[in-house]
Computed example of a mutant assay.
Amino acid sequence: MSTNKKTAPPSQPRYLWLRKCLLNDIMQGKYPVGSLLPAENELTSIYGVSRHTVREASRKLADDGLISRHPGIGTIVCSRKEKPVYVAALGSLPELFEYTHTTRVEVHKSSNIVADAALADALECEEGSEWVELTARRYARGKDIPISYTRIYLRPEFSGIRERLRGNHPSIYSMLEEVYGQTIHTVRQEIAASLLSAPAARLLGLKPRGPALHLKRSYLDKSDRLLAVSSNLYPAGRFELRTSWTRGGKRKDA
């Protein structure tokens, strides 16, 4: 086995980088299902990381059902397919509210912008209207792997929401209602196949142009005025959307 050390990018925690390296090796068949991963001391040498980093990366892989650790035997590869980081059913408003309450966003950039023709078309808003744009990563609560690259657009009068997006914060939906008294009358949701943009890939620690699910939600008041928009890119393997139907209606299936 090669002992050429690989180097973790400085922008990413080392255990997440190592988890990704080992996951790629498993998926590409370097470590087949049923085989043993290299011992802890071998992994520290191959990747130039500490034992703590190896243990944390292994713990994440075990949590995802990819490996299992057996004292006296070693670490066995159990599967080549990782469980999605987050599984959601978004076929109704109650399911959407549940989703927004069990995820959080981590804002990386904020700017005040004016909608040009392209953005007005994308948001379905007035050209020349002013917005606060937030660039963020979305996480499932209690998880440290981001599930999406998210851009949030808020009317300037709701800019105070930006300061409230810290820790396990309330949903933007609830803040619009509870902080600003804006009742959400309609939520429009659009889902489309997409590719990871370069900015999204950088923030998620992935390669650009990988497969992704684009999910856009628009929040409107009773007069059909657009209040906020959430545009999310979910890379493959980190998010799964499930919906099922029965005669007479639709029911939750996740």
Rank of each mutant, 00 (worst) to 15 (best):
Q182H: 06
R247G: 08
P235C: 08
K143Y: 12
I145L: 15
E98P: 02
L66R: 03
N232E: 14
E82V: 10
R155D: 03
G210Q: 12
L43A: 01
R19S: 10
S129N: 12
Q28W: 13
T243Q: 09
G249N: 07
E82D: 02
Y153Q: 01
L154P: 05
I76F: 04
L206F: 08
G74F: 00
L36K: 10
R217A: 07
L43K: 01
D224G: 01
L220A: 06
E163T: 10
A117W: 12
S58G: 14
G48C: 03
E133D: 03
P170H: 08
M1I: 12
L213P: 02
Y219G: 02
E178S: 07
D224Q: 11
P208Y: 12
S174Y: 06
S231K: 00
E106D: 15
L123V: 07
L226M: 11
R217P: 02
K6Y: 11
K30T: 15
E190W: 11
R251A: 14
G249E: 03
T103H: 05
T186N: 06
E177F: 07
E40A: 04
V54L: 04
E126M: 08
H70T: 01
R19Y: 11
I46P: 00
A140K: 15
Q189F: 01
R151N: 11
E130N: 07
A120M: 07
T243W: 00
S244L: 11
A89K: 07
E95Y: 09
T246L: 13
A198T: 10
P9D: 01
P84K: 04
T150I: 07
I191Y: 12
K5G: 08
L119M: 11
G248T: 03
A236T: 13
E127I: 10
W245S: 15
Y173N: 07
A122L: 15
G167T: 11
L213G: 04
S129A: 15
L18F: 04
R141L: 13
N4S: 12
P156M: 04
I191Q: 13
T186I: 05
Y153D: 01
A200N: 09
A201V: 09
N24V: 15
A136S: 15
R141I: 14
V33S: 05
P94L: 08
Y86K: 06
L176S: 02
C21D: 09
S11I: 01
Q28P: 00
R59S: 11
E177S: 06
T102Y: 13
Q182I: 04
A120I: 05
G34S: 07
H70W: 00
P38H: 08
F97W: 13
P10A: 11
R104D: 09
A115K: 05
S110E: 14
E124G: 15
P84A: 05
P38I: 03
Q12V: 09
Y149A: 11
R55A: 01
S79L: 03
L96T: 08
A39M: 06
I152M: 13
R162M: 10
Y31C: 05
R217E: 10
V229K: 05
K216E: 12
L206V: 05
V77Q: 03
R166M: 10
L18I: 02
P13M: 06
V132I: 14
R151S: 09
Q182L: 06
G29L: 04
R162Y: 12
L241M: 13
L241I: 09
S68V: 05
F97E: 15
L233S: 12
G48D: 03
V49E: 03
D121V: 09
L37G: 01
V87G: 15
A236K: 13
S244Q: 13
A200C: 10
